[in-house]
Design a protein around this nucleic acid. Structure first.
Lengths: 245, 245
DNA sequence: CCCATCCTTTGATCTGGGTCAAGGCGCGTC
DNA sequence: GACGCGCCTTGACCCAGATCAAAGGATGGG
């Protein structure tokens, strides 16, 4: 499970602390400092389109961004949710592979790609840290493949809620005991795009989970979870999954 | 697209050339040499179970291995296909996240994990190379998420055939012109597990593609593709995908 | 050569989730 | 406070793909 506390406590750009160079020395930090800049986006804005030139790499400071793919006929699949401290872009690639969109208001910390790549060459910690993060993302993507390929609609919804709940629990540092309230950062349609469902099915299954007492709604963006174990059971994970978003 | 030619031409362990240290100096190579060993598996054998301790990292030399997840009730989802030169395991993690199974007879080149990790610390090229490979795999996993979440059964089959065909074309260095014959390394059931379908649906869709002249079968492990563009069209990819397995 | 086993195909039927359609609810704006 | 607009819910119906069932090939071993 990821530890977000380091980020939360840090008033400066989180990338220095979590994403890139937790172990960098002062000189390296000041180099990064020189090539970094911030960008803000409003909810709904596109950060970059698939196949566009990508002049930067960076990480999310606040807010949530999503990676999506779209087919010509409009079918969409979200393939990643980027939370604070998550890294965007890849050294060594010129064009973006996916659309990146701001799901909520968003602040990103960016580094111009070329100088960042140069720096990577003589700062081994950076590549090692990025490797670690990328392997985590790969594992998360593979967990998600099980969800997309084999889970029922109800299990998909429960899994998504469980993932968001786990993250909230980590943020709030309250240990998932008793009632847990989570704040859905996604619309029903975005949830559908993430889960490989239609928005109607998402809505129906959320209603069903409510009727069965697995969750309770306050408005439609706040979900109360009286019993997290019950939810995990509904999610159908063999272990608690250790799933990352 | 991956280039397998370096591997094909190399009689020694491919990891030295492709996976780990294309740019290592002689001293580094000899260090790797000291900690490596080979393991062979028969088709169907399990290389490692999810949640087992993983004492090594390594790469596939010949044959095909698959990564799968299984739910308690037996639903299975393949989450990766490992081809020659692909890397298995992750530095810094003690237990396997997924089952690894030999799909065909398999030879792997392994490195004991601890010395490999030690070596990574003072050989920056290794982490950089692994990062590159992991990012490729992550992109491939995300392409696969679109397939699992949004494609129809027919599109899924066409996509899988296209991926295998692309790899064959790369191996044979014949430029996908005219008839292309591909050798299916998977049973119908394995294809189903990869595509998030049942084996009956796989069989039916293959029959349908045959009836429609998109492919022709010779036995049930050899597929002829008269028109690769036609197949790609059926796969529903907006671009040719650049998909990696 | 025959049998056993595994893989594959095909048919019949069922169903989970998609599609189409109609309202409901919250919220900002005039 | 009524309108418009996004978002969400619910109902009715349908269909792609799952499930259940049966029967063909392959292939290898005795």
């Amino acid at each position: 499970m990821q530890d977000y506390s380091a980020h939360i406590q840090c008033s400066a750009c989180p990338i220095r602390h979590r994403a890139v160079c937790a172990r960098c020395d002062t000189d390296e930090l000041s180099q990064l400092e020189q090539i970094k800049y911030y960008r803000s986006f409003q909810a709904g804005q596109t950060v970059i389109w698939a196949a566009d030139r990508m002049e930067f790499v960076g990480s999310v400071v606040t807010g949530i961004a999503s990676l999506t793919q779209t087919m010509e006929d409009g079918r969409r699949q979200m393939v990643g949710l980027l939370l604070p401290s998550d890294f965007v872009g890849r050294p060594g690639r010129a064009v973006a592979a996916f659309d990146v969109t701001a799901t909520t208001d968003l602040v990103m910390c960016c580094f111009r790609k070329k100088p960042f790549e140069d720096m990577m060459l003589h700062t081994p910690h950076i590549a090692q840290r990025l490797l670690e993060m990328t392997l985590d993302e790969l594992d998360a993507a593979r967990e998600w493949m099980l969800l997309l390929g084999r889970k029922t609609a109800r299990e998909k919804i429960a899994s998504l809620l469980a993932i968001i709940a786990r993250r909230e629990a980590a943020l709030q540092l309250k240990k998932a005991k008793g009632m847990l309230t989570v704040n859905l950062p996604l619309t029903r349609e975005e949830m559908a795009d993430y889960l490989g469902l239609t928005l109607e099915t998402v809505s129906r299954q959320i209603s069903a989970l409510r009727k069965d007492g697995v969750i309770a709604l306050e408005g439609n963006r706040h979900v109360n979870i009286p019993d997290i174990d019950r939810l995990l059971e509904e999610a159908g994970d063999d272990s608690d999954g250790g799933m990352l978003v």
